[in-house]
Amino acid sequence: MIIYGTALLAVCHLLGIFLGDLLGALLGAKTNVGGVGIAMILLICARLWLHKRGLMPAQTEMGVAFWGAMYIPVVVAMAAQQNVVSALRSGPVALLAAFASVLVCAGCISLINRGERPAPDTEADAEARVATQRA
């Protein structure tokens, strides 16, 4: 049943957020530390474990896949509720600080990614592999 997949996703989500809050409280960070990341790792582990035991029929997978596919529409809705007005009106300090840090980070990303050994992993190759592994 589809709901099994969605329920599995929900349980991983809740457990991950809870553990993230717990980790935050333990570290005294006053916020959730990596809750979503922990939930993702839990879901990956659950998938591997269930798959090995043949407990992951296509129907169940669809219960998760639907929400994964809803991701972009959700992000669009998220964009629609940002405080764009205050961001645009905030004056030069915010604009300059944001712009400069984006530039520095972009340069850094570019630098690190250029270091990735390109050998057998050409762009098309990697893309094809991601695609086949997904299928």
């Binding site: 996703l9 929900a10 991983c12 989500h13 991950g16 957020i17 809750g35 979503v36 939930a39 993702m40 790792i41 879901l43 990956i44 998938r47 591997l48 997978e61 998760v64 896949a65 639907f66 929400w67 994964g68 809803m70 991701y71 529409p73 959700v74 992000v75 669009v76 809705a77 998220m78 964009a79 629609a80 509720q81 991601v130 592994q133 997904r134």
Partner: peptide
């Protein structure tokens, strides 16, 4: 309703769901 759809709850739910495609 846009606030609910794009709020932290559904956003995180959808992000976690994308982990299904992660290659370990």
């Amino acid at each position: 309703g846009v606030g609910l759809m794009g709020g932290a709850m559904l956003r995180d739910f959808a992000i976690v769901a994308t982990a299904f495609e992660v290659q370990v």
